[in-house]
Design a protein around this nucleic acid. Sequence first.
DNA 1: CAGAATCCAGGCCGATACTG
DNA 2: CAGTATCGGCCTGGATTCTG
Lengths: 122, 122
Amino acid sequence: MKEFKTEKCPDTTACPDAVTVDVIGGKWKGIILYNLISGLKRFNGLGRLMPYTTKRMLTLQLRELEQDGIVHREIYREIPPKVEYPLTAFVETLKPIIYLMRDWGDVYGNEVIMKRKVSVNM
Amino acid sequence: MKEFKTEKCPDTTACPDAVTVDVIGGKWKGIILYNLISGLKRFNGLGRLMPYTTKRMLTLQLRELEQDGIVHREIYREIPPKVEYPLTAFVETLKPIIYLMRDWGDVYGNEVIMKRKVSVNM
DNA sequence: CAGAATCCAGGCCGATACTG
DNA sequence: CAGTATCGGCCTGGATTCTG
């Protein structure tokens, strides 16, 4: 059994799944990955697909994904500036998980949200 | 394409994977599920497996999992009290994801953590 | 266009103490 | 044993402004 210690998960047992959550579980990472998988985007194009996200958060989350080697930041030195965020080969290792999560959300997402609304009203 | 709006993800497009993150992506939920899958536990027994978690957080996270229908809270009216947290049938729908996440963490977790350490020192 | 910088409120979460 | 209650720090993340 491997052991991991991340900032958010210093427990020494049973952490591998927590590491994965840490990589794809950020506040906007799911949606970012979903949109980038559906096609190459640049910064503002991605932002337009996520109207509730601020540029600030988009930047922060993209930098984390970049740091983890999941997206690449391709800077074109032009005016006006142009920055694209192609996915790396590494993201292929995550796609099975992302797709399963998307499918699960499709099937059970509303059910979970309903359960939460019910217990709020009690 | 279904649309979801959760508290944490009010964007109306491409949210199903974010819903899933919301269900299993809490700070300690990965480890909790991992430990509960490996066998029925009671409250303090679970806590002993996660020495960095406080009872407070354990309670909060377990209650969320309970609300989402993933774990059941079985209270035995005894003295001293005894509370067990068996998994529900619903967790079976999540197991493929959890297992994939665990496997991914086993294989790539250290790699990601290394990448982060490197860029911290720059 | 693609950010960076700053400010600031809210809430997340740890520590501690208490309870049936 | 299995929690609850309370307090407080700090960090996340939103709003706004500024820049090359």
